[in-house]
């Protein structure tokens, strides 16, 4: 009786272990000497994989909230690009050209983080407000804002990447950092997972998010101000996306309005692989993290195998479908029982 729910809960873990084993096997077959396997499990490679999970992972945590509430946000890729541009411009003291300084101060970095996160929160507010108040499905609203935010990012940047003076943020995504062992970005991701998990499982807001996604009518009947909650959910998604944008900047060391095109699909895929359902009501922080991790492990494996990127794309695509297929199975069983 109790074993099945347990199995479904650990399903993403099982998937993760499966992906790791298959990766090891493929690398071993490709290089029977064992050198590649040794490289694959080396500390350096593991840290690289973890740090490469950060951008998608952070944004996917925000997306998890949205998807559990039966919403969708297609604009997060554009929001990330916008965040890198805003960050760069603020760190430059309001200019698209880098000031002539050796290093930007911590103060400027702090302001830039706040600005990038703030702008994305505003983007989320816009998405949530328009779709709630005017009753336009979020797919359409965020399809529109995906273009709008991308356009705004290009407009601000003047169509080119915004170069910046060296600053502390550029080290956030280094995989080899003294003392900490790995860049701040990874710790931020871990903190974000904990915050999201607690938010979803232990707070009134989290319960409301599940309720809205499970049955919006029931939520309304129970006195939940569904429209306002939805706006809040998109704002929170924007905050996570803004942080992801800061980390994307750290990777690039510049603000780039053409970065992260199509990344929203990877982000949604991470949520779905982690057990999120686009019909709402299910999903978890840990599952989403594992979903993002599976994707970066596959990326690393393909690099190790010397495979073309299309192999990676085909594999991830297949995993998304399989993950959703298993999810459907779960639903079928629920209605049979």
């Amino acid at each position: 009786m109790k074993i099945k729910p347990f199995l479904y809960r650990v399903l993403p873990f099982v998937g993760l272990i499966f992906v790791v084993l298959v990766s090891l096997l493929a690398i071993q077959i490709n290089d029977p000497s064992g050198q590649d396997v040794a490289n694959f499990v080396s500390l350096d490679n593991i840290r690289t994989v973890l740090i490469q999970t950060v951008v998608v992972g952070l944004a996917a945590l925000g997306m998890t909230l949205v998807i559990i509430s039966a919403g969708i946000d297609l604009s997060v890729g554009s929001q990330i690009a916008l965040a890198t541009v805003v960050f760069a411009v603020v760190v430059n003291g309001g200019s698209v050209t880098a000031p002539d300084v050796d290093r930007a101060s911590w103060l400027m970095v702090g302001l830039a983080v706040a600005a990038a996160v703030g702008v994305c929160a505003l983007c989320g507010f816009f998405n949530g407000y328009i779709s709630s108040k005017f009753r336009i499905v979020p797919f359409i609203v965020t399809l529109g804002t995906m273009l709008i935010f991308r356009g705004v990012a290009k407009w601000i940047a003047g169509g080119e990447a915004v170069r910046t003076p060296p600053n502390a943020a550029q080290g956030f995504m280094d995989y080899d950092v003294p003392v900490l062992g790995i860049g701040v970005g990874f710790y931020l991701l871990i903190a974000a997972i904990v915050v999201t998990a607690v938010l979803l499982r232990r707070t009134v807001l989290g319960r409301y998010i599940y309720a809205i996604g499970s049955s919006e009518n029931t939520a309304r009947l129970c006195g939940i101000a569904v429209e306002n909650q939805k706006v809040l959910i998109y704002v929170l998604c924007g905050v996570f996306t803004g942080l992801a944008g800061v980390m994307q900047y750290a990777f690039l060391s510049s603000g780039n309005p053409t970065i992260a095109v199509g990344l929203e699909l990877n982000i949604i895929a991470a949520v779905v692989i982690g057990g999120g359902s686009l019909s709402g009501g299910s999903g978890s922080a840990m599952g989403t993290f594992i979903g993002a991790l599976i994707m970066s492990i596959l990326g690393s494996t393909c690099t190790m195998l010397g495979a073309e990127t299309y192999v990676q794309e085909i594999t991830i695509g297949t995993i998304v479908i399989v993950a959703v297929g298993i999810d459907r199975l779960k639903h079928l069983e629920r209605f049979k029982a």
């Binding site: 319960r207 599940y210 309720a211 499970s214 049955s215 009518n217 029931t218 939520a219 009947l221 009501g281 299910s282 629920r334």
Partner: peptide
Amino acid sequence: QEGLAQSMSIVEN
């Protein structure tokens, strides 16, 4: 459709 959120638990409902 309305009275209860079918995918939520008895406690949550």
